[in-house]
């Protein structure tokens, strides 16, 4: 389990995270949502240690990650996989080399074993036959899938995804969501996805944490969102008239709060 206790992060005088506490369980797709500038990316970067929190703690299975030295953090990081918003594939390497990179760096497997593992992961993300292509030669959706393959190649315990659907068409987004959901359940990983894609929220949000202006405004499941009485969350999720009508159709009820107030 990943546990977050009173996490705060400021840049000079500007407070971005103002005391967030929550927890994320294995085998669940955990979504962190919020408007642009709400602190989602900073929150995830604090969780993985790319940013040092101003105060507060992050625990990985009871180990206080934020109190560890860089060398000790490296031990935990080998159990972390991360999919970046722009995929962050190494331009000078082929798809195969990208996925193989963590294996080359951290394992003593033979070349054949590594290739088998890479092919298995590429097959898992439906990218058979793309081994020798360079990142510049494949589409955005394929790059995301290569990013996922690279993130899962070492069988991580924790998977972080920063806006995995940004810049993708709805169909590709759904495929990425399904894939993330499937591997989370299959490998019982703790998956934390940073998104503002409403399809993802409603489709795969087993736990949703809603951030607003640096605070945790709400948390619950996607089903609970449908019946929320939190005005900020309601206006964020059902931003368009179409979605409001859709919600009304699903729940067959008028909202408990006045929308667009």
């Amino acid at each position: 389990m990943i546990e977050v206790k009173d996490l705060k992060k400021s840049f000079e005088d500007k407070a971005i995270l103002k005391g967030i506490s929550t927890y994320f369980e294995p085998g669940k797709t955990n979504l962190v949502i919020g408007t642009s500038g709400s602190g989602k990316t900073v929150f995830v970067k604090c969780l993985v240690g790319l940013l040092q929190p101003t105060s507060g703690s992050v625990f990985y299975d009871g180990i206080e990650f934020t109190a560890l030295s860089n060398r000790e953090k490296k031990q935990i990081r080998t159990k972390i996989g991360m999919l970046f918003q722009g995929s962050a594939l190494f331009d000078s390497m082929t798809v195969e080399e990208n996925v193989m990179f963590p294996l080359n760096m951290f394992t003593n497997l033979t070349a054949k074993e590594k290739l088998n593992r890479v092919n298995f992961c590429l097959e898992r993300v439906n990218l058979v036959g793309a081994n020798k292509k360079f990142p510049g030669e494949i589409s955005g959706g394929m790059m995301k899938r290569v990013g996922i393959a690279r993130a899962i190649v070492l069988n991580p315990k924790y998977l972080f995804c920063d806006e995995p659907n940004s810049g993708l068409d709805p169909q590709t987004s759904l495929r990425i969501d399904d894939l993330l959901s499937d591997i989370t359940h299959e490998y019982q990983m703790i998956t934390i996805i940073n998104t503002h894609d409403m399809n993802s929220v409603m489709g795969m949000g087993e736990k949703v944490v809603f951030l607003h202006q640096g605070y945790k405004e709400w948390e619950g499941s996607s089903q609970e969102i449908l019946h929320t009485d939190n005005e900020l969350l309601y206006n964020f999720i059902f931003a368009s008239e179409f979605l409001k009508q859709l919600r009304k159709g699903i729940t067959n009820s008028t909202p408990l709060i006045k929308p667009d107030k």
Partner: peptide
């Protein structure tokens, strides 16, 4: 610089590479 902007350096750090 390109590696930094495109988060490739962050990716290395997350993997546990210095």
């Amino acid at each position: 610089g390109t590696m930094r902007i495109s988060e490739q350096i962050d990716a290395l750090e997350i993997m546990g590479v210095n």
